[in-house]
Each structure stands twice: as structure tokens, then as C-alpha cells.
């Protein structure tokens, strides 16, 4: 379908076609940024979450305490607060960060948001994985011990594969929550879907742009939900009785 056809369809549905022609591209650009934010923070957060969950369940006191504190902080405080703390907090220490060679990362609003969301989702994913591993039948670990795997080996070969299957559904929910949470990046100048919408609104002063943003997020969440459900069905088909 070409652009004009899309616009005429949108016009027929009651949308303001000239407005869509003017701000549609900006909104698409914003969608790309939203997807990038989520695509960076959720997988990176997952890797960090594995480390956190392992430290929480298997680590000595020196590892368990910090892991629990990290998870408690990032799960117990709003993502907006975390983002402000990282973005404007880093700005306050720009001289020190500059001399440490880290300012390139903190200078950019996008990377500050990606960092904040990675730490945030890591804490939630770690709690999901921790719960899934802890709830496995004790026999699984005993069997792994009997095979002489050692703790890391038991996690890799026995515990994690089963726990992650159980965790698929909550991890999918966390992915969807992250898509929604990413909209707070707009408060620190990132032009994601929400940021693009605010720009379109301040340019046009037409409330309709907020309804477009609502449709974009709802469509995005619905697509991810369906894809994830299909994925989950595929990965757990051996567990179902015919």
C-alpha cells in the first residue's frame, strides 16, 4: 500500500488525513526509537537477571546481599525516578564521568534511558527467574548433584532450561510492561512514540494525536502478546498431553 492510499483510508475512518501526513513520519520515527529502547534493554536486562538470580540463590553473603539490595531498589521505586536519577544525576557529575571516559554514554538521553530500563527490567526478570528456579522440585537439583555437575553446571544443564519454560509467560508480561514503561523516556528528551506525540501535539494542538499514540501502543502490545503466545505454545508443546 502506498502512502496516499493509507491516508485516504485513514481519512475515511475519521482521522484527520493532513495531520497524519504531517506527523505520521515523526510518529514512525518514534516507533523505531521505542522498539530500539526495548530491543536493547530487555535482552541485556535478561543477561544481567541471570547473574542476579544466580547470585541471589547460590552466592555467599557477599553476593546475595548486594543482589537482593539491587533487586529491592529497582523493583521498589518508579522507573521515572530511576531515569531522572541517572539522567540528571549524571549531569551533575559530568566532570568526573568525563575524566572516567564514561561521559559519551551518559551524555546521550537515549543511552541513559536504555541504561535505566536495562537495570529496571533486570531486577524484575531476576525475580521471575529466581522464583522459577526456587520452585523446581528438589529432586532436579539432587539428580544434577548425583551426576556431579556442580552448581553452575546444574543451572546450565538442568535447572535453567526447566525454569525458563515456566518463566516464559511472566517474562512475556515483563516485555509488554517494558514497552509501556519505555514511554517515560520522553521526559528526558528522547523522541520515542510518546515523545513524537508530544511534539506533534505542541505543533498542531490537536488532541487527536494522543489517540493515534494510544492506537500505536495498543497495536504494538497486541502484536507482541500474540507472537509471544505462539512462541510459548511452540516451546512448551512437549509438555502438553495430546
Amino acid at each position: 500500500m502506498n502512502g496516499e492510499a493509507i491516508l485516504s483510508v485513514a481519512g475515511a475512518l475519521g482521522f484527520d488525513a493532513p495531520l497524519l501526513a504531517r506527523y505520521g513520519p515523526l510518529l514512525l520515527q518514534g516507533l523505531k526509537t521505542t522498539l530500539e529502547l526495548v530491543a536493547i534493554s530487555v535482552p541485556t536486562g535478561f543477561l544481567l537477571a541471570l547473574v542476579l538470580a544466580y547470585a541471589r540463590l547460590e552466592g555467599g553473603p557477599a553476593a546475595r546481599g548486594p543482589a537482593a539490595a539491587f533487586m529491592g531498589f529497582f523493583r521498589g521505586t518508579p522507573a521515572l525516578c530511576q531515569l531522572f536519577l541517572i539522567y540528571y544525576g549524571a549531569g551533575q557529575f559530568h566532570a568526573a564521568l568525563q575524566s572516567a571516559g564514561l561521559w559519551w554514554l551518559f551524555r546521550d538521553a537515549f543511552w541513559c534511558a536504555a541504561l535505566a530500563f536495562t537495570l529496571n527490567t533486570a531486577a524484575y526478570q531476576a525475580e521471575i527467574i529466581r522464583g522459577a528456579v526456587a520452585n523446581l522440585p528438589a529432586g532436579q537439583r539432587e539428580a544434577a548433584d548425583a551426576l556431579g555437575y556442580g552448581t553452575p553446571g546444574a543451572w546450565r544443564r538442568v535447572l535453567l532450561p526447566q525454569a525458563l519454560l515456566v518463566a516464559l509467560r511472566p517474562l512475556g508480561n515483563e516485555l509488554i510492561l517494558m514497552i509501556k514503561t519505555s514511554s517515560v523516556a520522553s521526559v528526558v528528551t528522547v523522541v520515542d512514540v510518546m515523545g513524537a506525540t508530544k511534539r506533534a501535539f505542541s505543533g498542531s494542538l490537536d488532541f487527536e494525536v494522543y489517540l493515534w499514540a494510544a492506537l500505536v501502543y495498543l497495536a504494538l502490545v497486541e502484536i507482541v502478546r500474540r507472537v509471544w503466545n505462539a512462541l510459548e505454545r511452540r516451546m512448551t508443546r512437549h509438555l502438553r498431553t495430546a
Binding site: 521498589g76 536519577l85 540528571y88 544525576g89 551533575q92
Partner: peptide, 20 residues
């Protein structure tokens, strides 16, 4: 006050206290 780190940290800790 131009002390964002201090105040955002304080705010986060207050949220944390309410959560706990």
C-alpha cells in the same frame, strides 16, 4: 538547588520506604 542527584535519590528512597 541544582542538586538533582541528591533529590532524585531521596525521592527514590522515599518510594522504596513506602514499598517496603
Amino acid at each position: 538547588t541544582r542538586q538533582p542527584f541528591l533529590f532524585y535519590l531521596a525521592a527514590c528512597l522515599l518510594y522504596l520506604a513506602m514499598s517496603v
